[in-house]
Design a protein around this nucleic acid. Structure first.
Lengths: 138, 138
DNA sequence: ATTATTCCTACTTGTATAGTAGGAATGGTG
DNA sequence: CACCATTCCTACTATACAAGTAGGAATAAT
């Protein structure tokens, strides 16, 4: 797992949009999520191009989720900001059995992150005894 | 999980030592594991300093494992080459619930890699229907 | 027309990874 | 002892990527 600042910011922004019931300005997101203003623009643009959010220009413009928060998995966001990583490295044939292990790790990670939606995270944040912790992913 | 080339090489080297019954030259490891010669030295030195392998200089010198292969977990090796990573980033308070998720991911990863030893990997490589796959880590 | 906002490309700067260079120290062998 | 193969050590370079910045064009409301 490579949680880059960009990814963390993007998730924060998505959560901010998820809790709002109306379009939100980049400015507001930047402030509440503590994202450098210009960088925030940058990230929102990327999220929009990926189809995760929608936007409107001009005064009273802003951003909102393209789908309900319950239908956007963390993995959806992460895939956008991290890009598709090279599947793994075989390197020497002698170390090949390791590849299987990397695969298992990636699978588990992927399963977990595909299972948890923005709505889940918000729910976990509210009832501070986390709903997320209750889930089982194999 | 950040499988750097260095880590992959280090694991390959450790596996090479694990299957040998006598000290092995850096040269030989570099060739069989397809590690750039000089870089191989570099990595072996690091592994020795960490106490995972031992060495002897001069002709007929070489490297060997400091402990039996069954007592060296993949995590032991990875911890050396990757160094201790900063535990996670809270970032904005709004995105705080995410921290718990990162923790779960790291825990699982850690559990799996601490469970699997060099001996396990070698066994999985031999009986090509993997012994490793049979394990359960929660 | 003005103004607030999103949109877009390109740039800068810092840090980590991957790998290299040059040679000192050590130990076996003749 | 001389020689040579090997490990040992510090420091350097080169490249890539992450983080963030800059300047302004397009659009929409008033």
């Amino acid at each position: 797992m490579r949680i880059s600042a960009r990814t963390q910011y993007a998730l924060g922004a998505m959560l901010a949009l998820a809790v709002a019931d109306r379009p939100v300005h980049a400015e507001r997101i930047a402030v509440t999520q503590e994202i450098p203003r210009r960088f925030c623009d940058n990230i929102l643009l990327q999220l929009r191009r990926a189809g995760l959010i929608r936007s409107q220009r001009g005064p009273d413009g802003g951003y909102w989720l393209a789908r309900p928060a319950g239908q956007i998995a963390l993995a959806d966001v992460i895939r956008v900001t991290e890009g598709a990583e090279p599947p793994a490295r075989p390197f020497s044939p002698a170390a090949a059995p390791l590849a299987e292990i990397w695969d298992r790790l990636r699978s588990h990670e992927n399963a977990l992150l595909s299972e948890i939606t923005l709505a889940d995270v918000i729910a976990a944040g509210d009832s501070n005894d986390s709903a997320v912790a209750g889930r089982e992913v194999r």
